[in-house]
């Protein structure tokens, strides 16, 4: 089984000033992520979101877009871990910054999907994921390899 039906939208998120500051103060307090005056004086010319904030937001939307089918027992892998475990990511790029009040649209695309050779009922996925501003400018892309419970329907 191989992909692909092209990029599928998984959700949208508006990066408010407060959201950008909250994430960056916890995880990435570089001046252009946490200090508006320093950001204005930097080569970015204003406050920008941590690249990891964009990536983590992608994951939050991806998980919420892939809930388990109803009626499964609580210890079913599709309930415990609907999108499973990741092996790693490659060629992650942040080609343009995300600024306060940008609404970002998030996508996923299956490049390849194949049954796990060692774990029956699991599928190994290779995806290309991305995010764009509403004007189409890409702000994030990366390839992800992960193993998820095979579709139950």
């Amino acid at each position: 089984m191989t992909g692909s039906e092209g990029p599928l939208e998984i959700g949208r998120f508006t990066f408010t000033r407060d959201e950008i500051l909250r994430f960056a103060r916890d995880f990435d307090p570089q001046p252009f992520h946490v200090d508006e005056a320093a950001a204005a004086a930097s080569h970015f010319g204003g406050l920008v979101a941590s690249g990891w904030h964009t990536v983590c937001t992608w994951m939050g939307l991806f998980v919420r877009a892939n809930g388990a089918a109803a009626g499964l027992p609580p210890d079913h892998p599709a309930v415990l871990s609907p999108v499973g475990v990741g092996f790693g990511l490659e060629v992650l790029k942040w080609p343009a910054p995300v600024r306060a009040d940008d609404t970002i649209v998030f996508f996923t695309e299956v490049l390849e999907a194949r049954p796990s050779g060692t774990r029956p009922g699991w599928t190994i996925y290779h995806r290309r994921n991305s995010a764009r501003r509403q004007d189409g400018t890409e702000v994030l892309s990366f390839e992800l390899r992960h193993m998820a419970p095979a579709p139950t329907s």
Binding site: Q30, S42, F44, V85, F87, L92, W94
Partner: peptide, 18 residues
């Protein structure tokens, strides 16, 4: 080290393995 460094952001990550 990065907060003491003249960091200008990152174009990306080549690979990340869990």
């Amino acid at each position: 080290f990065l907060l003491r460094t003249a960091g200008m952001g990152s174009p990306g990550v080549t690979e990340n393995k869990w």
